[in-house]
Write a protein that binds this DNA or RNA. Structure first.
Length: 199
DNA sequence: ACATTGATCCGCT
DNA sequence: GCGGATCAATGTA
């Protein structure tokens, strides 16, 4: 089942990030299907969260898509090298987002190896936010893509993740956010070898 | 128009 | 465990 808009438009991005674990993300780019199971996410909120690009109503050329109704892709370049794939959540004007940080590859593995320029199926194929975008072929040209369309979409395969397998911890790489960096808004499936290295 | 800064990854120690 | 790559977006003037 493709995930419908009401899933993304719920008001709490932390809940959406939590619920995305165990779901599947697919891309069909240049006619090639690739995809995998989501094992790591992070939530960003537009209020009371200095780490979020839209915090306190910042509205710029980069962040304008965040103010759309939930269910579109927010892709941006970080450190001049890596595209990061976010899902916009909540209703129009409430610019929340969930960053997809890690997936377990399931479909189109040969193509993903090719795109990543590696030969082994191990963590550095899709385990990390800048890596899974390369593997899935997601780039900044997918900024604003409708996630209920046929280029990038998510599916619920009815494989819920047991609550005691979900690890909530502080987000990484956002020291500039002050106290908000301590919020436990990073979700991982315990024991998955496809998440970012432990910290 | 210019200077600063990252929601990261990789290679070397 | 640490530092460098590398550049678009953002803030400041």
């Amino acid at each position: 089942m493709k995930i419908a808009l009401d899933f993304y438009r719920r008001p709490d991005p932390v809940q959406v990030a939590h619920d995305l674990l165990g779901k599947y993300v697919y891309t069909n780019i240049n006619g090639v299907l690739t995809g995998g199971r989501i094992v790591e996410t992070e939530a960003y909120a537009h209020i009371n969260d200095q780490a979020c690009h839209s915090h306190l109503g910042r509205y710029t050329a980069r962040t304008q898509i965040m103010y759309e109704p939930g269910g579109v892709a927010y892709v941006y370049l970080v450190y001049g090298r890596y595209a990061l794939f976010n899902i916009i959540t909540n209703e129009a004007g409430k610019a929340d987002a969930v960053l997809i940080r890690g997936i377990e590859p399931t479909v189109g593995i040969p193509e993903m190896l090719l795109r990543r320029g590696v030969t082994e199926v191990k963590r550095n194929l899709t385990g990390g936010p800048g890596l899974l975008t390369q593997a899935l072929g997601i780039s900044t040209q997918h900024y604003g893509t409708d996630l209920t369309g046929t280029t990038i979409w998510l599916e619920d395969q009815q494989e819920p993740v047991a609550e005691d397998l979900i690890l909530a911890s502080p987000r990484v790489g956002i020291d500039y956010a002050g106290d908000d960096a301590a919020l436990p808004w990073r979700f991982r499936i315990k024991g998955s070898k496809w998440t970012s290295p432990a910290r």
